[in-house]
Design a protein around this nucleic acid. Structure first.
Length: 157
DNA sequence: ATTAATAGCGGCA
DNA sequence: TGCCGCTATTAAT
């Protein structure tokens, strides 16, 4: 595992924690959550991050262009899925199947769900914009309710 | 090393 | 309406 640093990000919704390496953002934690083990604190090389998070949490469109992601640890397919998800335009919603198609394996939508379940980059990789084909949100295992909250935030519901 | 289970969906009777 | 098979990944055995 590469060297990781932790930074606390003050936002209007509370204190987020971002874990990052030289390659980019490694993991993002919601307020109240945090990495199991401690990492050295260091200011991230993205001075706009707090402001962008604020804007996003206030319901503004943020594309996250310019924020590199450290996707090490993902399988090849998972990486492709997450890359595709991160390209979903703001406010749009796709299905698991559509994401699997765009990753090159239309039948692997189920694995796409698995990839999203282990997504380390909530908000930045907007897994809340991927839903079941019936339009309903599945048994998402993250902090209760934040997916719906974020969808409402984007006006996509 | 092998198996079971997992963010469902589409086809078919 | 209900059953079947399908893919990639991970946790459990």
């Amino acid at each position: 595992m590469k060297k990781l640093f932790a930074s606390r990000i003050d936002t209007i919704k509370g204190d987020f924690i971002v874990l990052w390496s030289e390659e980019g953002i490694f993991e993002l934690f919601f307020p109240g959550a945090g990495p199991v083990k401690a990492y050295p604190a260091k200011d991230p090389p993205w001075p706009q991050l707090a402001a962008d998070l604020d804007r996003y949490l206030a319901g503004g469109p943020v594309t996250w262009v310019g924020y590199p992601l450290d996707c090490s640890g993902y399988g090849e397919f998972s990486g492709r899925i997450l890359a595709e998800v991160s390209r979903i335009p703001y406010g749009q919603v796709f299905t698991y199947r559509q994401m699997a198609e765009r990753a090159g394996s239309p039948l692997a939508w189920r694995a796409a769900g698995q990839a999203l379940a282990s997504n380390r980059h909530p908000l930045i990789v907007p897994c809340h914009r991927v839903v079941g084909s019936n339009g309903k949100i599945g048994g998402f295992s993250g902090p209760a309710g934040w997916k719906e909250m974020l969808l409402k935030l984007e006006g996509a519901v």
